[in-house]
């Protein structure tokens, strides 16, 4: 099947993405009222990188080391039957959560099903005092009553379009694209 290449529009370039992350770091700090109980948990894969960036920005300003973790929600998904097993499941490592303010970090918020799975999975690791949600891109289209506390940017996405988040560590450059697949 021959297809014309997908059409890419840049939503955030590297500098805009960096500014968004800096603002998100400040908002995380305000939301958690400091770093005392703050734990950042990134959702595999790109959420982990974004959580790491936000953690470093906070650490630089506050002079502390923030506990952080990574969460792969594959085994908590509700669509194994239809989507099938994911070929490679990423690492999950979760620090102590008891009494903590956990901020979940992900790249794109869409249906909310990933976050639903993440909340279920975190509950099996401990009982945080509070859980908040921080996403780089909110693209709308929720299928569950889940809303973010902190948003990098909002994008309106039509049928046949998707949002790609690229990060230096995995993709060679920092960028957020709106991709139209013909």
């Amino acid at each position: 099947m021959s297809r014309s290449p997908p059409e890419r529009t840049i939503i955030l370039d590297a500098r805009a993405l960096s500014r968004a992350l800096q603002r998100m770091a400040v908002e995380v700090l305000e939301l958690a009222r400091g770093t005392d109980r703050l734990v950042l948990i990134g959702i595999q894969r790109r959420g982990v990188e974004l959580a790491e960036r936000i953690a470093k920005l906070i650490e630089k300003d506050e002079g502390v080391v923030l506990p952080r973790g990574a969460l792969d929600i594959t085994l908590y998904r509700d669509d194994l039957e239809t989507v099938g097993p994911k070929p490679v499941i990423g690492e999950t490592r979760i620090p102590d959560l008891a009494g903590k303010h956990v901020v979940i970090v992900d790249d794109v918020l869409y249906t909310g099903r990933t976050v639903r799975a993440a909340l279920d999975e975190l509950a099996d690791f401990g009982r945080p005092e509070r859980i908040s949600l921080c996403v780089l891109v909110d693209r709308g289209g929720r299928e569950l009553p889940i809303q973010p506390d902190i948003v990098g940017t909002k994008v309106k996405v039509s049928d046949g379009e998707r949002v790609d988040v690229l990060v230096e560590e995995l993709d060679g450059r920092d960028e957020v694209d709106l991709v139209r697949t013909p």
């Binding site: 959702i43 790109r46 989507v83 891109v137 993709d171």
Partner: peptide
């Protein structure tokens, strides 16, 4: 058990694209 229980692997490809965690 996990791999045998799953559904159609061709659909799993959709999960591999960047930003495709949803």
């Amino acid at each position: 058990l996990y791999l045998l229980a799953g559904g159609r692997p061709e659909l799993a490809d959709a999960a591999k694209r960047p930003g495709g965690t949803e």
